[in-house]
């Protein structure tokens, strides 16, 4: 009887899978290609050299419009910067100093600033969302910290989007200030192609092609979205390994105890 139930169960599962495929097939935008990120798979880990390059692309290209507001300068230690490097990176920008001894936050209508420190958040290009919209023709450049988690198939999508800018097909009339990108839902995006060859100069000698920069900055964004990824997967392997052994032992004990019954 149980056997028959299992056969029916698997039939149900197959039908479910069929419906699942229909669900997936109905997308509006073009499906991004699959890229083998170093973070993929059970043993996935960060390529720290790549993350550093990605940080460079972010600061030199993306940071003009996009924030990564969940990242602190101190977090850069996790991608391989030393504490003195972090201090230097942070000190190169300024943040509002807050009220001084006399309670003033502004002097001559300018906010009083101090150099940023490791415990400060990475500075945002705009003071608030309204200013960001105003500077970008009404479009809001989204925060990038969680981008690869906040889109379906995030990493592949971001990479496809960054490298997917094209001439609009002849049938499509672009609205004012819009650009064509088949990976973006609806095909029209307010961001112009952000990357061009040699837009940054890598210190490690890697050639800065559009493809390379896109991969690097995407890898960097995987890290900003899931900084715990490496620790999670490493711990996970140990935990699952332990549980499989423990469960096998429990099964043996169970067999032993139940064998008394018959």
């Amino acid at each position: 009887m149980l056997k028959r139930n299992f056969i029916i169960f698997f039939t149900v599962a197959t039908i479910s899978g069929f419906f699942g495929n229909i669900v997936n097939a109905a997308g509006v935008a073009m499906k991004p290609g699959e890229y083998a990120w170093s973070t993929n798979g059970v043993f996935g880990s960060f390529d720290r050299k790549q993350l550093k390059r990605g940080w460079q692309v972010y600061t030199e290209v993306c940071a003009g419009c996009h924030s990564v507001r969940l990242i602190y300068y101190r977090n850069l230690a996790e991608i391989g910067f030393s504490s003195s490097e972090i201090k230097k990176i942070a000190a190169s920008v300024e943040v509002p100093a807050g009220p001084n001894e006399d309670g003033e936050t502004h002097k001559d209508d300018e906010p009083i600033m101090r150099p940023a420190k490791a415990f400060d958040k990475v500075i945002s290009p705009y003071p608030n969302k309204i200013a960001a919209r105003a500077a970008n023709g009404g479009a809001l450049p989204p925060d990038l910290s969680l981008m690869t988690k906040a889109r379906i198939n995030g990493p592949n999508y971001v990479h496809a989007l960054l490298t997917g800018f094209k001439e609009a097909p002849s049938g499509l009339k672009l609205s004012d200030g819009m650009y064509y990108n088949p990976y973006y839902p609806g095909g029209q995006i307010a961001m112009a192609a952000p990357l061009s060859a040699e837009a940054v100069e890598y210190s490690d000698g890697t050639k800065a092609t559009v493809e390379q920069m896109s991969k690097d900055v995407t890898a960097f964004l995987i890290w900003t979205a899931e900084p715990e990824l490496e620790e999670r997967k490493r711990l996970g392997i140990k935990v699952i390994f332990f549980l499989i052994i423990f469960t096998a032992m429990l099964y043996a004990v169970k067999r032993q105890i139940w064998s008394k019954l018959n």
Binding site: F242, L243, I245, F246, M249, L250, A252, V253, Q256, K260
Partner: peptide
């Protein structure tokens, strides 16, 4: 009843399972 089927091999498995479970 359990005592009658006592056997050191059996106990070893049981107690090592307890030990592993406690560690977990």
């Amino acid at each position: 009843k359990k005592d009658t089927v006592d056997d050191s091999k059996r106990d070893f498995l049981l107690y090592s399972t307890y030990a592993v479970g406690s560690v977990g």
